[in-house]
Each structure stands twice: as C-alpha cells, then as structure tokens.
Design a protein around this nucleic acid. Structure first.
Length: 526
RNA sequence: GCCAGAGUAGCUCAGGGGUAGAGCAGAGGACUCAUAAGCCUUUGGUCGCAGGUUCAAUUCCUGCCUCUGGCACCA
C-alpha cells in the first residue's frame, strides 16, 4: 500500500451559505489535486463541514429542528456546492459523522490517559454570540464591551485544558528547520514571530454539556463536550483513520472503528498539504502540530495559506451587500470561467480583488480571444484546407511546446497556479504569432505550397492538443471539449499526453465550436 | 503602539549600482484563417520624500511620509 498524496481544505462552518471565499479555497485545492493526479500521483482530496458548536445549536433551535437535522439540510447545500465546482474530492467529512466522533474520542482518551489534560476553574466574561470568554483586553475604557459581543455575562466555569506550554521550543525549532512547512514565507515569519514573542497559554478544549450539548462528549467525562480544536482539526486524521491508515491505527490502537479490508485501505497520513485561509493560520501552524505531536503522529508536510477576496477594493460583507455569489457567476459565465478567474487573478497568498469588469476582461481577452479563438481558427483551417485530416508530423513548434510543458510541470508542483496559467498562455500567444508569420491562409491559395501548409497545420493542431492537457487541472470541462473537437477519445487528464507528436497523421478531427462564446454583457449583479 | 512588507507607466506588477521593463488600457498600421478574434508598431515614468555612501543610486544606508498585512474573531 503506497501512500497517496493527501490534500485537505479547511472544513467550513455550517452556518449559512457558501460564498466566494469558500469557493476559492476549494477550487485552488481541486486544481492542485487534479494537477498531482495528472502528473501520475495517487491523490486523496478531502473537504467537508464543521458542524458542532453553539451557533449551530441555536440556529437549529430557532428553526425548531434538531441540530443534526439542521446540519443535514445544510450539508446537502454544501455537497451540491462542491459538485457545482466540479471538485474531485474523494470524500466529504462532516464532524457529526460517527466515524469522526469515534476518532475524536479515541484521541481524547489517549491524551487524557497520558496526562496532557487538566481540569481548571475559570471565572470570566462570556459572550454568547462569539462563543468565547472575553478578557480585560476586550474591555473598552469605560468597562463595557463592544456590541459585536452581544450580551456579555460573568460566569464561573470548570473546563478541561490541553497543556501547550511545554511545546513552544520544539515547534519553533521545527518551523525553522522546515522552511516549507508554512507557505508563503511571510506567513511562516508571522508564526515564528508569534511563537517567539508570546508564551503559549494552555488551550481550553471543552464546554460544559449543560451549556453546549451539540458536540462530541468527552469519553472520560460526559458532563462535557469537546470544543473546536479536538473536533474540527481532527477531521484531517479521522477520515484517514476510517480508511485504516496504518500510521493512525498505530497511534490509536483503541479506536473502535472497523478496519476496511483490501483495496479500501488507504495510507494517507501525514497529509501533504493543508490548504487554509489566513484567518486560521495560528490554529493550523501552532495548535495542530502540538496536538499531532502529543498524539504521536508526524506533522503535515505543508500548510499553504491563501488570502481573502475583496470586491471593488472593499471588504466583502453581507451587511453592506458587497458580495459575490459564486453560483450566480457560474450560472452566468460557466464554471470554467469562474475557475479560471480565481486562479489566474492572484497568486496563492496575497489578497485578491474581484471586479466584474476584470472578470469580463479576462473572459474575453484570455478565454474567448485567447485559447478559444486559437483552437477555432486552427480547426477551421484544417477543415477548409485539409478536410479535417491531420497531416504528417512536423516539429517546428515542438521545442517551444516542450519548454512550456516543463515550466508548467514545475509550477504545478510548487504550486504556482497563477504562474502555470501565465506560462501556458505564452504558448497560445506564440501559436498566434506563428499563424501570422507563416500565414497558412495565403499558402492555401498556392498549390505549390501544399507541403509547407501541411507542416503548419500539424504544428497548430498539436499545440492545441498539448494545451488541453496543460489546462485540464484548471478547466477540466474545457480541456475535454478541446479533445472532443480534436476528435480524440482519450481524456486530457494525463500529463504524459503533453508530449509532442501525439496526433497521428491521417487522424480526422471534428468541427470547431467556440469554447467561450464572446459576450458583451457584464455578469449580472450577485 | 509593536512586528513584517510595499511605494516603479492610467491599472496590476516584475526588476535591480552604470541609456527604465511586462501584461492590460490608450493611439496608429498591415492582414483576413478565426468568436470583428489575432498580429505588428507606438504614446506614457524626476522608479514616495529628504539626506548620505559612491566616479555613478531607482537600486545600498539613514530619517521621514503613505499604504498593506500580522499582533483579537472571521474562507
């Protein structure tokens, strides 16, 4: 059993409908997953939902539903969302899954037995709305609390805590010795700055069941449910454990979950990549590694931190109506146009700025006039001049194409998705220049130039074929369409197909049809 | 306030001790296979401000100004 490339997204809190930020993270992750598969790796891509907590409990109550029924309904929307984005995830985890609960309880039992937890009283001001205790730092000069906290009450509570204090130094060392552990590097610097300038405080990992019943009960104290950390973060290992991952089974020998047999067993841990938003960096780069070390597991290879989207230079906000509805955009422009814009517009890391004009501009200039038109004009010429039949192989653009292929391969592995798209589009530009320089439409009028015309047409068709393979991780449907128009029966999902000379002489293509029809309207307001 | 980082063409950004670069936008042109697409040419800049080091600074140093991110929740 060889270990798969294991890739996760953050699991989203099931409190409302998916928006652009969720869609972005999922698409980026999916492109990486598809790229790795295309390059020949076995990939396990996991996404899912975080369902426990007070907000869900309250929302369910106000709708007169059980929390589980409430989550079931929303989970349907989120699964549909994943489908609409054409995510290629292998599994979809929900923290209310029985398999997840079993793993969480096994972890808690083990860490409790090994003395990682202690019980302690805490008196403080509690904000129900924010589900958090407030400190003196949260107070305003007049002693009151900001209205974002809602009603604040003072209460005394006994809870369980996870000892973090002893873990600070090894974690600093680990991050310093593993420069790729947190990417981009400025996020790594932030974490190191935090770890070096603050003393870690122990982590409160429970809530009294009396106050919060919608959670996973502590196996050693039914008066409590576990809270956030050992619930949500644990999804990354609960699913591998359910698939019988050897590393996890070894770390959690008392796990009460049937082990799958034969082909269903998977080796996934350690994760190769956690894709997360910058808001949850600390949890993933500080708490999570410490939890894993305590459990006795190795750390994920990389935490890749993406930025947030703005719209028209302003913060996206439901209350001001400054929002993007990804599903509306997809309905209007097509999924691949959406996937293209969010991966092309910004690198993974910095914040991005969504503008409808920018979206329309990339659609027209790059998708319609770029890749769409290149395929269209190339196929149209082959149809007019050679009755759709591919001439003998000729290698005039082979060098340029293979240079592009190798550069894209590197960028996909990094992963530099924006860079890969830029590289790939340089081949489109090159092919368009080639058409102008060689003017096949002039040669077609002179029978004496038939040989030269054959050569040019072959080069164009072959570039289009290779482009489809390169673009497949980003725009799977478009890549399939290109192959279909080229009359190819295979799927463009294998990077090995991006080798020059794949089109056999005599092969007959199909008719051209615009991949991205030009349009003159802006996307409808979300 | 503290810690990073950034200020370069209308916009987004790359670069880097010695005549300033790309893409998009703008202007002009030749062509016609194509989704009136594509191609070629081209106008734009005291490289944030002030000092310093140097034969030479946009680049290195110092100070200042402005902005962004992090330090508290949120994809």
């Amino acid at each position: 059993m060889t270990k798969s490339f294991y890739l996760t997204t953050a699991i989203d809190y099931v409190n409302g409908q998916p928006h652009l930020g969720h869609a972005y993270e999922k698409v980026v992750s999916d492109v990486i997953a598809r790229a790795r598969r295309s390059l020949g790796q076995e990939v396990f891509f996991l996404t899912g939902l975080d369902e426990h907590g007070q907000k869900v409990q309250q929302a369910a109550q106000s709708e007169g539903k059980s929390p589980q029924a409430y989550c079931d309904a929303l989970a349907l929307d989120w699964r549909t969302f994943a489908t609409e984005l054409q995510l290629s995830n292998q599994d979809f985890v929900r923290t209310s899954d029985p398999r997840h609960k079993s793993v969480v309880q096994a972890i808690l039992t083990k860490l409790n037995n090994e003395g990682h937890f202690y019980r302690s009283k805490y008196r403080g001001f509690y904000s129900t709305r924010q589900e958090t205790f407030l400190t003196e730092k949260d107070r305003r000069p007049d002693g009151s609390f900001d209205s974002i906290y809602g009603e604040v009450t003072e209460l005394v509570e006994e809870n369980y805590y996870f000892k973090l204090r002893d873990h600070q130094q090894w974690l600093i060392d680990y991050i310093e010795h593993n420069p790729d552990f947190i990417a981009p590097s400025y996020r790594r610097n932030e974490v190191l700055g935090f770890l070096k300038n603050n003393d870690l405080e122990d982590l409160c990992i429970t809530r009294p069941a009396a106050r919060l019943s919608w959670g996973i009960p502590l196996p050693f104290d039914p008066e409590y449910v576990t809270y956030v950390w050992f619930d949500a973060l644990a999804n990354y290992i609960s699913v591998p454990a359910a698939y019988g991952d050897p590393a996890l089974r070894a770390a959690l020998p008392d796990l009460k979950l049937n082990e799958p047999t034969g082909d269903q067993r998977l080796a996934l841990w350690p994760a190769d990549l956690h894709v997360i938003g910058k808001d949850i960096l600390k949890f993933h780069a500080v708490y999570w590694p410490i939890m894993l070390k305590a459990i006795g597991l190795s750390l994920p290879k990389q935490i890749l931190v993406h930025g947030w989207w703005q719209k028209d230079g302003e913060k996206i906000s439901k209350s001001t109506g400054n929002i993007i509805d990804p599903l509306a955009v997809i309905k209007d422009w097509g999924l691949d146009a959406f996937r293209y814009y969010v991966t092309r517009e910004l690198a993974i890391g910095p914040d991005g700025n969504w503008t409808d004009a920018g979206f329309a501009s990339r659609y027209t200039a790059e998708l319609a006039n770029g890749i769409g038109n290149l395929l269209n004009r190339s196929l149209a010429m082959l149809r007019s001049y050679r009755n759709k039949t591919v001439p003998a192989r000729h290698d005039e653009l082979a060098h340029e194409a293979s240079k592009t292929v190798e550069a894209v391969r590197k960028q996909l592995l990094e992963p530099d998705l924006q860079g890969a798209l830029q590289t790939l589009f340089s081949l489109i530009t090159h092919a368009n220049q080639y058409i102008d320089q060689t003017a096949p439409f002039k040669l077609a009028k002179d029978p004496a130039q038939a040989q030269r015309l054959d050569e040019i047409l072959y080069n164009l068709m072959e570039v289009c074929r290779i482009l489809a393979v390169l673009i497949w991780p980003f725009l799977p449907s478009t890549a399939e369409k290109i192959f279909a128009q080229l009359g190819l029966l295979k799927s463009p999902s294998d990077f090995n197909l991006a080798v020059w000379g794949g089109l056999p002489s005599g092969h007959v293509t199909n008719d051209p049809a615009p991949l991205f029809p030009r349009r003159d309207t802006l996307p409808s307001p979300a």
